[in-house]
Design a protein around this nucleic acid. Structure first.
Lengths: 182, 182
DNA sequence: CTGATTGCAAACACTTTGCAGCAGA
DNA sequence: TCTGCTGCAAAGTGTTTGCAATCAG
């Protein structure tokens, strides 16, 4: 099960553009600093999980992390993994992303600009992009309301060129929307 | 349970800015047209649910809809409600929004611009806003990648003026992040 | 030493689904 | 009639939690 993420009811499968992995050391230092500051402990399990997280390229799900952890021979229970994922967010190393109501996705944000996503609803392909304009707009909107921005998520759903061509061929005047029939 | 939505691990409660409800007739016509076109039937249950949906002001959760349905004496099972919610999305009347991994939120989009959200992570208050600039930016980004935009979700997380002041008072040099301790 | 951490299994909560009887068109 | 629809209750599933043993600092 959970063989492939289903980012949206009708999205076949996610295939996020890969991003480079980050080196372990500097991020680990951030984590240890955070843990220390919160009177939490740096344990082997947490080190393993952080390591596995940093190996991820682009978006990933908890399930993927779990399976990779024990593929690498590292054993860390589901519970510990989820708990650590949460701490990594608090430490500002990870960002949780909500695309659908099935599961959460995660993305490493330590030392890099957070990404936004362009998702093809037909193929499930996800393009990660980073836009200065999005950040500017976010600032502007917050300012208008007197808010101080902390983070944001900008997800654009659409059709990739290939998918659009495909659909035009199949049903010249059809509807799209997010059909989720059985 | 589900007494109050928890839009984010540490968000106390959602209190979306209220939006005007839409009149039933025109939207119902859209729904019937959609149903007819898809060889689906217009049933009393679906009518009741659509009616309850249109009474919602701003964002709402399935749970809220359910409770209101039977408060109004309308009985529609959970199953039917969820199934109808799905059809309403296909009909372009409703949009599903993903803020957290707990539940889905919905918003009526028929005949209006979809909203984006500015969420205060301290108070849980949600401000709905509609920005032409966001739509323009979405077009632009899609164009760059050759995509055809269908929809988007732009969620900005931050601190409301009050919350920011509050936090500054409590911990002059503290961390924030999305703590989700127990 | 002492409080935080771990793994396990059970608990959770939202959502989906199988099924038998019902009912629009 | 012929499909599609409904309610119910059971199944699903990602995530969380209680607890006793263990371990980091």
């Amino acid at each position: 099960m959970a063989e492939g993420p289903s980012i949206f009811p009708n999205l076949p499968r996610v295939a996020a553009v890969k991003q480079d992995a980050l080196p372990y050391e500097p991020v680990c230092a951030i984590f240890r600093r955070y843990l220390h500051g919160s009177k939490l402990k740096f344990t082997p399990e947490r080190a393993m999980i952080l390591d596995a997280v940093l190996r991820q390229k682009g978006l990933f799900e908890a399930e993927k992390l779990l399976s990779e952890l024990d593929r690498l021979g590292h054993r860390a229970s589901r519970a510990t993994t989820y708990r650590t994922l949460s701490h990594l967010q608090d430490a500002g190393i990870l960002k949780q992303v909500f695309f659908d109501n099935k599961q959460s996705y995660y993305e490493v944000i330590a030392g890099r600009q957070a990404y936004d996503y362009l998702i093809c609803v037909a193929t499930g392909r996800v393009i990660e992009f980073s836009s200065e304009k999005v950040r500017k707009l976010r600032e502007e909107i917050c300012r208008e309301h007197g808010y101080s921005p902390l983070s944001h998520q900008f997800h654009i759903f659409g059709l990739s060129p290939e998918a659009a061509a495909e659909q035009a061929r199949e049903r010249p005047s059809g509807e799209e929307s997010n059909a989720q029939k059985k």
